[in-house]
Every structure is written in C-alpha cells, then in structure tokens.
Amino acid sequence: MNANPAIRPIALAVIRRGDAILVFEGRDETKQQTFYRPLGGGIEFGEPAADAVRRELREELGVELYNVELLGVLENIFAAFGRRGHEIAFIFAADVVDPAVYTAEDLGLVLDEGTPVVWQPLSRFDGDAILYPTGLLDLLRGGRR
C-alpha cells in the first residue's frame, strides 16, 4: 500500500496508424503480466493536460505532436507493481509531426524508462493482450476519431 496515497492526473496520446495505435510495452513482474499503454505521463501542477501530453511525448520519444484533441477522461483505480494506484487519465488523439514515425516498425525505447515502443492493432486487445488504462479500448471504439 502507498504510504501517501494520492490521485495522479496523467495525459496520454493515442497516435493511430490505420487500425494500430502507438503504445509502450510494459511488464509487471508481480502479476507476471505484459501490458500495453499509450505514451504520456504525469501532469505537473499548473500545467494544462494538452501541454502535458505534448511535453511527455517530447521527453519519452523525442517527437512533436499536432492535432491534439481530447477524446475523453478515464478514472483508473488499479493494483500494479505490488501497490495500489489511482489515476485520472486525460486521453488525447494526436498526430506526430515526423512522418517517419508512421512507417517505422522499430521505434526504440521510451527515453526516460527504457521500455519498448511498438505499433499494436486494436484487434490485438480483443484477445489476451492487455491495454491500459481500463476503459481505453471502449473509448477508442466509440470515440470521435
């Protein structure tokens, strides 16, 4: 259990290439589980969520975003890495300025974490592949973009 539990606001970018989205591949050894999540991260105090998602993608992948549009907000209460968490996730659709990102199969690693960045088709998450945050797949399938 967290010593000082807090709700963490995050901003995530859903970048599409046809029916695929750009995600990082994570591993939770406490659950023996591989999962996928769009790139993004914490919103700093006084920072608008749209600015946070632009900053996070610059820090994590070294890319610039445009056409940043709020798709929705998800509340995620979860257990991961042996502790409980609570996030409010602002989910943004976005495009990447550099067109090479859309043709690359190997996008390397998240710069500040070292986790692999990959394209995954949405249909992959109909099976046993896990997409976080919970509710994201439903939002994307019923979303405006």
Results as ranks from 00 to 15, higher is better:
P5N: 08
A80S: 15
T115I: 11
F90A: 09
L71W: 09
L57A: 00
A100L: 11
P99E: 08
P38L: 05
L137F: 06
G142H: 15
L107F: 05
G143Q: 09
N67G: 08
R17Q: 11
V96G: 08
P38R: 04
G82Y: 00
F24V: 07
L71Y: 07
L70M: 06
R124A: 15
R37V: 14
G85P: 00
V63N: 02
F45L: 07
E69C: 08
P48I: 01
G127T: 10
F125N: 11
T103D: 13
G85S: 01
F81I: 00
R145V: 11
I77C: 03
I91N: 01
V117E: 05
G82P: 01
I130C: 04
T115S: 14
G108K: 01
E75P: 00
T115C: 09
A11L: 07
N67T: 02
F45D: 14
V53E: 04
I7M: 14
A50R: 13
R83N: 02
H86E: 11
D19N: 12
R16N: 06
T30A: 13
Y36F: 15
R124K: 14
N2G: 02
E47T: 03
L111N: 14
T34C: 08
F92S: 05
I77D: 09
D138H: 13
P133N: 07
Y36M: 04
R124P: 00
S123E: 14
L136K: 05
W119S: 06
P5K: 08
I15V: 15
V73S: 02
A104W: 02
G114W: 02
G42H: 05
V110N: 12
P133A: 07
I88D: 02
N76H: 15
A104K: 12
V23Q: 02
L70S: 04
A52W: 01
D51M: 12
P9Q: 07
G26A: 04
V118W: 03
T115D: 15
L131P: 10
P38E: 04
A52E: 02
Q33A: 12
R141L: 11
V118A: 01
I10S: 12
L139H: 10
P99N: 05
L12H: 03
G40W: 03
Q32R: 13
F81A: 10
G62A: 11
L61V: 05
L109I: 10
T103F: 06
I7C: 12
G127M: 10
P121E: 12
R8A: 11
P133K: 07
D128M: 10
R58M: 05
V68C: 06
R16H: 11
I15M: 03
L139M: 14
Q33S: 11
G41W: 00
R124F: 11
E64M: 13
R55G: 04
P38Y: 03
A49Y: 00
A20P: 01
G46F: 08
R8I: 15
E69I: 13
I91C: 02
A49H: 00
A100G: 07
L107M: 11
